[in-house]
Design a protein around this nucleic acid. Sequence first.
RNA 1: CGGGGUGUGGCGCAGUCUGGUAGCGCAUUCGACUGGGGGUCGAAAGGCCGGAAGUUCAAAUCUUCUCACCCCGACCA
Length: 571
Amino acid sequence: MRVSRFLLATLKETPSDAEIISHKLMLRAGMIRKLAAGLYTWLPLGLRVLHKVENIVREEMDNAGAQEVLMPTVQPAELWQESGRWDKYGHELLRFEDRHAREFCLGPTHEEIITHLIRHDIRSYKQLPANFYQIQTKFRDEIRPRFGIMRSREFLMKDAYSFHLDQSSLQKTYDLMFETYSKIFKRLGLKFRAVLADTGNIGGNGSHEFHVLADSGEDAIAYSTTGDYAANVEMAQALAPNGERPQATAPMTVVETPNQHTIDEISQFLKVKPSQCVKTLLVKGKNGLVALVLRGDHTLNAIKTAKYPDISSPLTFADPEEIRELVGCEIGSIGPVNLNVPILVDHGAAHLADFICGANKEGQHLSGVNWGRDLPESQSVDLRNVETGDPSPDGNGVLGIARGIEVGHIFQLGKTYSQAMQALVLDEQGHSVILTMGCYGIGVSRIVAAAIEQNHDKSGIIWPQNIAPFTIALLPMNMHKSQRVREVAEDLYNTLQAMDIEVLFDDRKERPGVMFANAELIGIPHRLVIGERGLDKGEIEYKGRRDQSAQSVPMDNVVEFIKERLEMNAL
RNA sequence: CGGGGUGUGGCGCAGUCUGGUAGCGCAUUCGACUGGGGGUCGAAAGGCCGGAAGUUCAAAUCUUCUCACCCCGACCA
């Protein structure tokens, strides 16, 4: 591709609404342009990357025996009513009517559509298992789209759905998809990690997320530093402390704590560690309020907590008015002693003796409080977020915490949708069996942004070779002045093109600095510079995007040299 | 949806408080010089100041309404 014939829409300045590095660089490199909140146009440069990601995903899905289909973006309400999600999904589902006043929505996901298809077209166990996927535009009317393509309302997703006679068949396909995803992210050239995940509102049991590791990631991942365990912090289990609880040594005493509310304030005021305090949070339960008791230095995990049967899901804090009515004090003075609501105690808090807590009276706390003496002993549960250094739940080493961007998610759906929508097949005995399902998503457009978050420097993007928009930037110095430079450049361009190497040939009448800056900003992995200077010595200059400095390559060897370079970088 | 903020040539911004001829940098076009890290000089094109209503001799500027966008919170690939 000649730059003179290509929309290279690079910017020197960053548009003011870009927050994170990938968004800034995608705008500056001329990959995307915003149309409206959460809606983006892909420019030629960006689309080349998107297509590369898409093709790698497609190839690996095909290799895994999945079949590609393409379902509509616009979906009829009836199917969503049948699955029960028309009412459950909320405002993220964009709904509208057609001219006949029939209700439709823009598909945020396609379980209903594929289940509808399969219940008509798959009748026999002989057709199972089967796995169908599509690479298609999704629409989710996010409350707050942000970070450019990372969290947009319209985005490109690969979604796959598998159908099975039983759980063991699902497990096989699930494992195969796990492997396939690992292959995909390896080929994309990204550092990633598969983690145990929460199933969210899609429903079902087993689930893993695939995260691209990047400091800017929105998710926290807990992993064993010595073993295989890895889980989203949302999910990661916090073990009960080992050993016996220490003996009670102090009497329970009321202490005056005027205007001291937060754990920090209390612990400083009373000169104790936050870990010797207890915090009591009131949340809404199925029958009135429920108190959650955690150690002062621990943080509540809303996802895990909302799974306890008495707790409302999603987790919702009690209103200050409700608290005043029930306890008679403000939020900072609540404690579990003589609190007239059901109490859930975290393992950490249950292991404390002689602890500090609110006295349910403004300006007072209790010290020397002990379970079983000052308040009833209760079974402890897991309510908190794990922290760096916690023991790993698999008993293997301790946990570390890393940041990640969720780019893939696989679920064992089970019969949630097939049951609701009556997707049945006949088994070997001629009995009707409800299908068992799995679903497997990859955020194709998000991967583009995640790749940049993971691979960039001051000058711009550094594409992994397999998803780079072009493989080589061919930069002639002052070609308009030198016939010799022009000839060598044109010649090399044609040779590389003939080898099916994607070359971006900067044939503009630009100054060298502009060419260098542009090539680096858009992240082309390999650069060849042709100038009078080098030609005098019969040399062409090569520099990899990550290299510190350039090297000279004899002109006659340059094609061979490039071939080797590309193979070295390819997987 | 709650809280905070911004709308002025394509992009980044000043001007608004204190009403009086719409500005700067980048980008674009033309010319000259320059030619290995976003170069210099000169010339040009491009904006009814988000929209509507009002106050006023006069509104980018004041008032009211409205729309859009951004940031912080709960959702998710």
